Simulated scan of single mutants.
Amino acid sequence: MNHELIFSLAGLMAMAGWAALLLSPLIPVWSDRIAGFAVPGILSAGYVVILFAFPAPSGGFGSFADVRELFSHADALIAGWIHFLAFDLLIGAWICRRGRQEGLPF
């Protein structure tokens, strides 16, 4: 697996989602669909595929040492990064959507 390519593609997808949020005053419905559903959904699907197709041979979430061991494996590290990108964008889209609903200025 080419981790650098996956890292770059995931980053570009997340940036596209954040760009959609920047344009949300102009295209609120499309911004919600792109940044709130499509991009996080695609990133999450990629996360799940990597997680199950390339399981880490050691490590876990039971202690700090286990987490450090888990993320010493490139496959687990890239899966964690994609998870972070997807979750961060999902929360950003939720905040943007709630702000519009509450009438907050952009």
Rank of each mutant, 00 (worst) to 15 (best):
L85I: 06
M1A: 11
V29Q: 13
P40V: 09
A79H: 08
A45F: 13
N2M: 03
W94N: 10
P57E: 07
F84V: 12
G17L: 02
G17I: 02
F61C: 08
F84W: 14
W18E: 04
S72Q: 13
I82C: 06
L22K: 07
H83P: 00
F71Y: 15
M13N: 07
I78T: 13
P28A: 07
H83C: 09
F52G: 01
P25Y: 13
W81H: 06
I50Y: 00
A14Q: 11
E4V: 11
A74V: 09
M1F: 11
G80Q: 12
D88L: 09
D32C: 14
A86M: 10
P40N: 13
F37H: 13
G103V: 00
L23N: 07
I27P: 05
S58E: 14
L43S: 08
P25W: 11
D88I: 00
A53T: 14
V67Y: 13
A35K: 04
M15D: 09
L21D: 01
F7V: 05
S44Y: 14
R68H: 03
G62Q: 02
S44P: 11
G92C: 14
W81C: 03
A14M: 14
L70I: 01
V67G: 04
G92A: 15
A53I: 04
A10Y: 02
G62M: 03
A10T: 13
A45M: 10
G59V: 04
I34V: 15
A93D: 03
I91H: 04
W18K: 03
I6R: 08
I50K: 01
D66I: 00
G59A: 10
P55I: 06
L43V: 05
F37C: 09
L9I: 14
S72R: 11
D66R: 03
A74E: 10
L104H: 03
A16T: 12
A45D: 06
S31Q: 03
H73S: 05
E4S: 06
L51F: 14
L9P: 00
W81N: 05
M15I: 15
P25V: 11
A93L: 01
M1G: 11
L51A: 06
A76N: 06
I91Y: 09
D75E: 15
R100C: 02
P57A: 09
Y47K: 06
S63C: 04
P25T: 08
A20L: 07
F37P: 00
I34R: 04
I6C: 04
F52P: 00
A53Y: 09
Q101R: 11
W18A: 08
P25M: 03
F84S: 09
A38Q: 14
C96I: 06
I95L: 12
I78R: 02
L104K: 08
A16N: 01
G17E: 04
N2Q: 11
W94D: 09
A86D: 07
H83D: 10
F64Y: 12
L12E: 12
H3S: 10
L70N: 04
